[in-house]
Design a protein around this nucleic acid. Structure first.
Lengths: 198, 198
DNA sequence: ACAGTTCCGATGCGCTCGTATCGGAACGTG
DNA sequence: CACGTTCCGATACGAGCGCATCGGAACTGT
């Protein structure tokens, strides 16, 4: 067996470059040449890792989805003593990518979501990510609201979907400058408070 | 004065073509040639209406924003006798573009939102549309919740922002296939019900 | 009818894109 | 130390892009 290369690792490096460029110029500003340059490899190397550009984009989407998902999961288990409600608030904030240092990820994610509306391959990857998030959220909502003294019954799945959609919508509105991150956080907090005080 | 052409009208026709193509192949699938062909005019005519492609896209965004906005406004005044709460529900459904026949508009809108995250020109137009919607919604929320018997005070502006973000998030989730239109409508209805029964 | 102005369809240019190709560098193996 | 395999950098290619150009069609006012 002659010269071998860690393909998995290179794919990750390339995916990072894709995300950086998508953050700066949008998804359509991502070209193979620029990606290769940013990743400090040759175009040939990129082509060896991914047969086509679409394959590269799909991998990059999965990569960033994995990163966000694992950060959310980390938030959920960091402090086992916290209430489910608190955990849910943290996780939702994480999903909404409101913190300044995650603005880039938010832009990339939004670009992928828009593209997924017309690309079956991207849509599949995205749906998997969202399904996993919805599951996590639904579990947390159920746990946080299992108080038998509640006057109004709540559908955990529906509340999870609400939270997820709200987080995504807030992310978009922050990105285009309609809301400040602070205002978005305020909206999110108010929604959660209302959810847990009914 | 020699031969004259209704430029405003042609711009509208071209904008329609832009939206149709953006719906089918995403915003980056929109080329001047395809737009001209779809609008049944020559490329030269398109170039006469819009100096650059970006100018064309900005106009198209404004055009579709105007269409959606006026539809929302129509919903708000159609039946003056309806309660503010009902009007708000209708308007929110309209903004979320959940009805099948508006799916195309939703895809176009999402494409523009994503692009606006990296394009100042588009972001400006979008912000104006959202600001107007938020204003309308905030007014309706205030009207619907002016019941002095309410136990918990509500910030109309914040609720308007919540509603707007939720609607946008739901739109995106429907487009990528994570939610069915029915499920999205269900989420929206539940949110409004909770808002008006607290 | 003619002159003057506006408009636009056709065409070309320069560029960038994604992809295909291939010769040689790199390296484990016998 | 060659040999064989794997890898990749450089380059070529055809397609498609946005944009510029321009000659003549179309139409108005005289």
């Amino acid at each position: 067996m002659p010269r071998q290369v860690d393909h998995a690792d290179r794919r990750r490096i390339v995916a990072e470059a894709v995300c950086e460029l998508a953050d700066e110029h949008g998804l359509e500003g991502v070209t193979l040449r620029d990606v290769a340059a940013r990743a400090q490899v040759s175009m040939g190397a990129v082509q060896r890792c991914f047969r086509t550009k679409e394959e590269m984009l799909v991998f990059a989407l999965g990569h960033i989805g994995e990163r966000i998902g694992s950060r959310v999961r980390a938030r959920l288990v960091r402090s086992p003593a916290q209430s489910a409600a608190t955990a849910l608030g943290h996780a939702a904030t994480e999903v909404a990518l409101l913190r300044e240092e995650h603005r880039a990820e938010a832009r990339v994610w939004l670009a992928f979501v828009a593209q997924a509306a017309v690309s079956e391959a991207l849509a599949g990857t995205l749906k998997a990510s969202y399904a996993a998030l919805e599951e996590s959220f639904a579990g947390l909502v159920a746990e946080a609201l299992e108080d038998p003294a509640r006057t109004v019954p709540v559908d955990p799945r529906r509340e999870a979907r609400t939270l997820l959609a709200l987080a995504d919508g807030l992310t978009a509105h922050v990105l285009i400058g309609h809301l400040t991150p602070r205002a978005a956080q305020d909206v999110l907090d108010a929604h959660l408070t209302a959810l847990f005080t009914d």
